[in-house]
């Protein structure tokens, strides 16, 4: 399980990889304590840790501080949006990409639209999303789904297009009809590319959720990030940043674990 989440590097290598961050944290702490860096701008790691602890575990009824004991639900808000938007992106992007890669007619009809929308950055969609969906979850989910959709659809297209010709011929010769061909041959052959697209898409989904929560909704890690900045709580801002990083990392590792399961036949597939 540990190996599945952290890759195949041994514990020794893990230790080596932790050395540099550890040194940086020590220097950062020293700078903070010596007073060289103003604590209102860059609070020392120990202060960040304290803020994070309170944010995660303190009793919410302790005072007016909104960052007491709300970390769990904040993370859940963001994670739920990412999950919903990402799931929509998969549900639409994978079948669409497979069809574009498989069928020239579909490619001719749909691909130009996708290719012309794709260069529009996800941030440029913000006003559109708010205008259409208002300050509600739907706007955030739309942005996340849209952001994750493009890499998924593009990679699924490439996967379906690159299915070895003789695999298609073999299936046809064995009597597979078009539907069986798509589900039993094209889809499994394209899955490796599909997972590549999903990993890229998941990264964009976490970017999109932060942007959306800063602007379009009033909860989640993105909302707290910006809110804490406004009230000068840089300790919470940094704790929030690290939380986002951990959430993104863990969700990627889960996806990779699923990938290894699904593509178990592909021994070369590595994280």
């Amino acid at each position: 399980m540990i190996a599945a989440v952290f890759g195949r590097a041994g514990l020794g290598q893990l230790g080596l990889g932790l050395a540099l961050p550890f040194i940086l944290v020590v220097i950062w702490e020293a700078l903070g304590r010596s007073g060289v860096v103003p604590q209102g701008i860059l609070p020392a790691p120990s202060l960040v840790g304290q803020a994070w602890w309170d944010w995660a575990f303190a009793d919410p009824g302790m005072g007016l501080n909104p960052y007491l004991g709300t970390w769990g639900e904040t993370v859940l808000f963001s994670a739920r949006r990412v999950f919903t938007g990402f799931a929509c992106a998969i549900a639409i992007g994978v079948p669409m990409g497979i069809m574009i890669g498989w069928n020239r007619m579909v490619a001719g009809a749909v691909d130009p639209l996708i290719q012309s929308l794709r260069p529009i950055p996800i941030t440029a969609w913000l006003p559109f999303a708010i205008a259409v969906f208002g300050i509600r979850d739907a706007g955030a989910v739309f942005l996340i789904g849209l952001g994750a959709f493009f890499p998924i659809v593009v990679n699924a297209t490439a996967g379906a297009r690159d299915v070895p010709r003789n695999l298609i011929r073999a299936a046809r010769m064995m009597g597979a009809n078009e539907r069986q061909l798509l589900l039993r041959v094209v889809l499994p052959a394209a899955l490796s590319n599909v997972f590549t697209g999903m990993r890229l898409g998941l990264g964009i989904a976490w970017t999109a959720v932060i942007v959306a929560e800063i602007v379009a909704v009033k909860s989640g890690l993105g909302y707290v990030l910006w809110d804490a900045y406004y009230v000068g709580r840089m300790d919470v801002v940094i704790a929030d940043m690290v939380s986002i990083g951990i959430a993104g990392f863990l969700s990627d590792r889960v996806l990779v674990a699923v990938q290894h399961r699904v593509l178990h036949w592909k021994q070369t597939a590595r994280a």
Binding site: R169, M173, M174, G175, K266
Partner: peptide
């Protein structure tokens, strides 16, 4: 039935599932 030069088996299917692919379809 065609036997290809490079076998062209489905790499995600076991030997059994490759052999029974046609009848299943």
């Amino acid at each position: 039935a065609v036997v290809f030069q490079e076998a062209s088996l489905f790499p995600w299917l076991s030997v059994w599932d490759n052999v029974t692919f046609g009848p299943r379809m």
